[in-house]
Simulated scan of single mutants.
Amino acid sequence: MGAHLGVMRRLILTTLMLAAAPLAAKAQTWPGWPGPPPPGYDPGSAIADQHRIEMDRLRNQAAEREALAQQQRLQTRLTILQLQAARQPTPPLPPPTAYAPRTLEQERQAREAQDARREQMVRGVTEIDAWLDRRPH
């Protein structure tokens, strides 16, 4: 793609230079010596031609710089895409947990608390059973 733009740019510049060559020869101002100006010489036209040729040169230079900038933008985008494609994927994060992992001491305390609740429940159940088993009035 870059080579294609380079070939087109050279072709356009060559064409413009060939077209401007006869104008450049025609647009020379008369220096005022060694003799009178040639027939049909108009100093205003000669200066206008010189200005027009210089403006064309500057326009061509600006177009060339813009083409180079566009080519560099495309190359930059292509390089970024290649780098992103070559990048190693990030490993997936572990799923978030609803609780923080407990230490061994916390685990021991949780087991002891659960055992205490069971004992309380068993004791409560036996009290209820005793109340249900009581003799009616």
Score class of each variant (00 low, 15 high):
Pro95Arg: 14
Leu93Arg: 13
Ile53Tyr: 05
Thr97Trp: 05
Glu112Tyr: 07
Arg102Thr: 08
Gln61Met: 08
Glu66Trp: 02
Leu58Phe: 10
Leu104Lys: 12
Ala69Val: 05
Ala48Asp: 15
Glu64Arg: 06
Gln82Trp: 00
Ala85Asp: 06
Glu107Leu: 14
Ala100Met: 05
Pro101Ile: 00
Ala48Ser: 12
Glu54Lys: 13
Glu112Lys: 06
Tyr99Val: 06
Gln106Asp: 00
Arg52Ala: 12
Glu105Asn: 00
Ala85Leu: 11
Asp49Asn: 15
Arg73Met: 00
Arg59Phe: 03
Ile47Leu: 15
Gln84Lys: 08
Leu78His: 12
Ala48Val: 02
Ala100Ile: 04
Ala48Thr: 12
Thr90Tyr: 01
Leu74Arg: 09
Ile47Glu: 03
Thr90Asn: 02
Leu93Ala: 09
Ala98Met: 04
Gln106Gly: 05
Gln109Asn: 04
Ala98Cys: 09
Ala63Ile: 03
Ser45Ile: 03
Ala113Phe: 03
Thr103Glu: 00
Pro94Tyr: 01
Gln75Cys: 04
Ile80Met: 10
Glu105Thr: 02
Arg102Asp: 01
Glu64Gly: 10
Ile80Thr: 05
Ala113Met: 06
Arg73Leu: 02
Pro89Glu: 15
His51Ser: 12
Thr97Ala: 10
Ala98Trp: 06
Glu105Lys: 01
Leu81Gly: 09
Thr79Ala: 15
His51Glu: 10
Leu81Tyr: 04
Asp49Glu: 15
Thr76Leu: 14
Ala69Trp: 09
Ile80Phe: 06
Gln61Cys: 04
Arg87Thr: 10
Arg111His: 11
Gln114Glu: 08
Arg87Glu: 11
Gln84Leu: 14
Thr79Trp: 03
Gln72Tyr: 03
Gln88Asp: 15
Ser45His: 04
Arg111Tyr: 04
Ala46Lys: 11
Ala85His: 09
Glu64Tyr: 10
Ala63Asp: 00
Ala69Thr: 08
Ala62Asp: 00
His51Val: 15
Leu93Asn: 00
Gln106Ser: 03
Ala63Val: 10
Arg73Lys: 05
Leu83Asn: 13
Arg77Gln: 14
